[in-house]
């Protein structure tokens, strides 16, 4: 090999290395450095020791936003799996217009979250929203979708499910189609019920997909921003304050860069821990 050919791979990967240094390595180190400082960018930076960490542990809103995110995940993940799996099972049968249904369910996936949020904010309206008018017309009572502190996060979770379920339907369909048809035939001969077939054939087959839905939803839950930003501003009573919205507020409303960096570190750490736990327990299940 000549020297020249040896250089080429390095040239090819150099854009990546440059990117890594500027937008990954430096920021992580700099962010860590920032957590020990107080800085609003225009004034000189001040060393503040572990003040930011101390403040965070005593910050009601930090814990609140963390609880909100977990609450979101507790509602969102089961909803997501039930609807996606249910609809995928239906679509996996002999159904007419299968492609059409699939395209319709997929539509919200490709549309910007901003559109979805603006739309649903109006549908969720307490006084004149379509959903409440529907509920009243069938004899039920109005729901304070976005005005009741106990409902705001569940409402966002329902909307997020509506937005993403199409993608997971497709993923489940891929998983379902990989199950050999003779498994079901054999089970039928043995007299297995539909539930048993679902429990012992379908679910084990799509277990990796379920795991992926959980991981992706967890990351999604911790990335919630535009939904509360547009719909509720984090309220009522901070009940829809998401982790990213809280970082955004500290950084770009109050310019507490050091504290915002501390929050960023903490949330990233929490996400990684949660994902590691999920990996350990859910992957082992079956």
């Amino acid at each position: 090999m000549s020297r020249k050919t040896n250089l080429i791979p390095y040239l090819l990967i150099s854009p990546y290395v440059l990117f890594f240094l500027v937008f990954v390595a430096f920021p992580v180190l700099f962010s860590f450095f920032l957590t020990f400082h107080k800085w609003n960018i225009i004034s000189p930076m001040e060393y503040s020791g572990i003040d930011n960490y101390e403040r965070m542990f005593n910050d009601r809103l930090f814990w609140k936003s963390l609880r909100n995110t977990i609450w979101f995940l507790i509602i969102h993940i089961p909803l997501q799996i039930i609807f996606a799996l249910g609809l995928a099972v239906f679509l996996n049968g002999k159904i007419k217009f299968k492609g059409l249904f699939r395209s319709v369910f997929f539509l919200p996936v490709i549309v910007s979250g901003v559109v979805v949020t603006i739309m649903w904010q109006q549908l969720y309206g307490f006084n004149s929203g379509v959903l409440n008018r529907l509920l009243v017309s069938i004899g039920l009572v109005r729901v304070g979708w976005l005005t009741n502190p106990d409902m705001a996060m569940p409402s966002i979770a329902i909307m997020a499910t509506w937005k993403n379920v199409g993608l997971y339907i497709i993923l489940f369909l891929v998983g379902l189609q990989a199950v050999p048809a003779h498994y079901y035939e054999a089970a039928e001969i043995d007299g297995a019920s539909s539930w048993q077939k679902l429990r012992y054939i379908t679910i084990p087959a799509i277990n990796p997909t379920i795991f992926m839905v959980i991981i992706l939803s967890t990351i999604g839950g911790f990335s919630l921003f535009i939904e509360p930003y547009v719909m509720t501003g984090g309220g009522p009573l901070n009940s829809s304050l998401s982790s990213v919205l809280y970082i955004y507020k500290q950084a770009f409303e109050f310019y507490h860069m050091g504290y915002a960096a501390t929050l960023g570190f903490a949330f990233a750490f929490i996400i990684l821990i949660i994902i590691i736990i999920q990996k350990k327990y859910i992957e082992k299940e079956y």
Binding site: Q121, Y124, G125, F126, N127, S128, L146, T147, T232, G233
Partner: peptide
């Protein structure tokens, strides 16, 4: 007083 944000409706 109305309890809904003015951005709705």
């Amino acid at each position: 007083f109305a309890k809904e944000s003015n951005t709705v409706g």
